[in-house]
Design a protein around this nucleic acid. Structure first.
Lengths: 170, 170
DNA sequence: CTTTTTATGTCAGCCATATTGACATATTTC
DNA sequence: GAAATATGTCAATATGGCTGACATAAAAAG
């Protein structure tokens, strides 16, 4: 292995650093989705169901269009997954009050339970990593990740550091 | 919106922070793979081909087993993709010198060109985010992301900060 | 030197998740 | 009343995973 600290070849260093970034995202995502996927396959669901359950749980009353905008898939693709979740009783829909064309989606108790079991591991993973890295590193993590996201969705994640209880004010 | 700086409800804050972490990974990965996917679909390839081309380019002479360990898919799944890349002339294989059972994989010129065009956008994204965030934030990004990855693959990413040319020594 | 293990490939079938295109319905808005 | 919107559905297709079973060549071990 080349000595990566040597600044002899700046171009190589730069390329190496960028490639490591690419790969870290690949490995992190692979491992981040591995365990929920395993749980899902036992109950005959897939990753797509996870995404729907997650975002319906996160935004109760979300409409189908909003969900489509987040997932960036076609309505036909969503339809199958969502119908399944509806008939299996993980999700319910209620017509909108002002606009009755809209179907406002909510998790049932069963859906909440599923969502919790799926994200428990992911939350754990993040919590462990955040705790080990410290508030400053977390801020850097958020800062970089936010800029990797397309600009349209960046506003979901405030620039400001979230003040952790007990963490020192900078 | 609730005032996220208020420490009134620490449990809520914590949950919110973890969920944002989950979502940032989702959005980042979605957008990170979006553009390569578009290029690939034009030439009749998919994301799976990208991953193979990427890791063969990254580790010239990599064996099939090593590739399987990285991708964590079955050999049957890899086989289809790899065969296609071989017949289309993106990848070549050479028997190992010591162990001739092994097929050492390399990119052809065509493969290198494809790999470059696919990762150009990803490198750009990372480069822009890194530059905007600064060396310290990058270190935090790496620190957190590394801990999200399963421990077996963490060693791919050294703990040490890579010294950016021109960045001040801490 | 034969047996076993390893590295790899292949055939066949299955499933989940995505796609496009076309058409349908209810509701709201102009 | 016409047009736009929110949503659903049918049909066909592609991709990329999976399992199981079997095959071959080379290396390692007895």
């Amino acid at each position: 292995m080349a000595d990566i600290k040597s600044p002899a070849n700046p171009l190589f260093l730069r390329e190496e650093e960028l490639r490591q970034g690419i790969e870290m995202l690949f490995f992190a995502y692979r491992d981040f989705t591995g365990e929920p996927d395993a749980i899902l396959s036992e109950i005959g669901l897939g990753r797509a169901h996870h995404r729907v359950v997650y975002f319906v749980g996160r935004h109760p009353g979300i409409t189908v269009s909003e969900l489509l905008a987040i997932l960036k898939i076609t309505k036909q693709s969503l339809s199958r997954v969502l119908s399944h979740l509806l008939t299996e009783g993980y999700v319910i829909q209620r017509p909108g009050e002002q606009d009755r064309r809209k179907r406002l989606l909510h998790l049932t108790a069963k859906g909440i339970e599923l969502e919790q079991s799926l994200t428990a591991n992911q939350r754990k993973r993040i919590a462990v990593a955040y705790r080990a890295a410290g508030a400053e590193a977390v801020q850097g993590f958020r800062r970089v990740l936010r800029d990797i996201i397309d600009i349209e969705d960046r506003s979901r994640f405030p620039d400001e550091t979230i003040q952790l209880p007990g963490s020192p004010k900078r």
